[in-house]
Amino acid sequence: MSDSTPQRNVIALLPEACTSCMVCVRECPSWCISLESHVEAVSEEGARRPRTVNVLDEFTIDYGLCMYCGICIETCPFDALAWRDSFDYSSGDRQGLRQDAVDLSRWWPTGS
């Protein structure tokens, strides 16, 4: 393990990479990830029919329930989740430990 390997401190989300496949949500043993998405049709030049893509609306991790097992990161088929070293996100109340897609994506650039 090199020194640059992030510790299990916070989970970062790269929303552009997330396909809303629900794999992490289903595999999480603590049931602390929730996700909402909708389907959009994308027409491409030359394609006979528009392609349908999932568009991520909301992605939340409840750190009050998360046990930092890393299963979500391991199972994501699109590498949209990763550990980051930051741990400065304590909160005085329960709701403050729920991080949405904006909160989670802010961690992404902070580490390796």
Binding site: V25, R26, C28, W31, S34, L35, E36
Partner: peptide, 20 residues
């Protein structure tokens, strides 16, 4: 009793009835 967050299906098909 807790609603399973994985219940929703993005594909509409293969909806899992019971959580693992």
């Amino acid at each position: 009793r807790t609603p399973w967050p994985g219940q929703e299906s993005t594909t509409g098909r293969r909806r899992q009835k019971l959580p693992p």
